[in-house]
């Protein structure tokens, strides 16, 4: 559906995108993850044909964005970072205009607009002038605009910005729903959001692609950590002794009492060693019940920071 090859974009001497390639199939929700200024918006602007790339090609549905723009654009719906709204228009007139731009057949327009308003939850503001709407509604009118014409490819730049928590859940559900039949590219810097709605994540950092995989896959790319946070019931001295009896040298730090007689510890073993099982045995032997253990499972935040760190190291090595 979407095939992005070797995209490079220069703004003057600044390199905004550096050789980015990825593709997304039908029924896939692809997340673009990155810090501010990582090149997410630039990538989306190029995919939708708003700006041209310095180098590289974008194929939508097999049509090249540069040589066959009308055909390629016909199957793309785009919600930019700032929803492209005409503040003086009424919501319905605006969506009608979008229908005309995207060449929705005249007879179907009314029904089409109603359906999309319902999907995005803006039926009750249909007759209002856009400039009087709140930010959340504007965002949803922008989303409705992107859905007009039932495009096969949806490009959504931070679609949940400005929405309240219940609306965020609604929009995420909608995205997942739409992602079953089409292809969606979503950008975000909120890692939990990407994790929740995307089957695939492309991580951008300073214009370069530093990772491409499923959210699960990405965690696998990073070695199991040698750090464990655990709650243990019993005397801290005994816990310290148990840790020192481990076959590998570990450092332990008590981080406070959590419940009566239960303390939290941070235990760190040598690099690239899984200390969890050994830890369990040692504590069992010393008759110290482990109430909770965290580790091994790392958050998207960690993954992201690690990826950036790794790519920086690679850069330095070069």
């Amino acid at each position: 559906m979407i095939d992005v090859k070797n995209l490079t974009k220069h703004y003057g001497s600044k390199i905004a995108l550096d050789n980015v390639s990825f593709s997304a199939k039908e029924g896939q929700v692809l997340g673009l993850l990155g810090l501010n200024g990582a090149g997410k918006t630039t990538t989306m602007n190029i995919i939708t044909g708003y700006i041209g790339a310095t180098e590289g090609t974008v194929l939508i549905n097999g049509f090249d964005m540069i040589s066959e723009p009308a055909k390629a654009k016909a199957s793309v719906g785009y919600l930019p970072e700032q929803p492209p709204l005409y503040p003086d228009m009424k919501v319905k007139d605006y969506l009608d205009f979008a229908c005309k731009l995207k060449k929705v057949k005249e007879g179907d327009r009314e029904r089409h607009i109603n359906r999309i308003c319902e999907q995005t939850g803006i039926l009750n503001v249909c007759g209002r002038v856009i400039k009087n709407l709140s930010k959340g509604y504007r965002q949803r009118v922008g989303l409705a605009q992107a859905l007009i014409g039932d495009p096969k490819v949806l490009v959504l730049d931070e679609p949940t910005v400005g929405l309240d928590p219940s609306q965020i859940i609604e929009v995420r559900t909608l995205i997942r729903e739409l992602g079953k039949t089409g292809t969606i590219i979503v950008s975000s810097h909120i890692l939990s959001e990407i994790k929740e709605i995307c089957d695939r994540v492309v991580v951008l950092h300073q214009g370069r692609m530093i990772a491409d995989g499923t959210p699960g896959n990405l965690s696998g790319m990073i070695h199991a950590p040698n750090k464990v946070v655990t709650w243990v019931e019993g005397d801290p001295d005994l816990v310290n002794m148990a840790v020192s009896s481990l076959p590998m040298t570990c450092t332990i730090r008590e981080t406070g009492q959590k419940e009566k007689g239960i303390y939290e510890y941070e235990i760190k073993g040598p690099e690239n060693t899984d200390i969890r099982a050994a830890l369990f045995r040692a504590f069992a032997k010393a008759d110290l019940p482990m109430i909770a253990i965290k580790g091994g499972d790392i958050s998207m935040e960690d993954i992201f920071l690690r990826l950036i760190e790794d790519s920086n190291k690679e850069e330095e090595a070069k």
Partner: peptide, 12 residues
Amino acid sequence: LKTDQLLLTAPV
């Protein structure tokens, strides 16, 4: 208004 993004990404 950034509405040029609407116009320029539409099949027009």
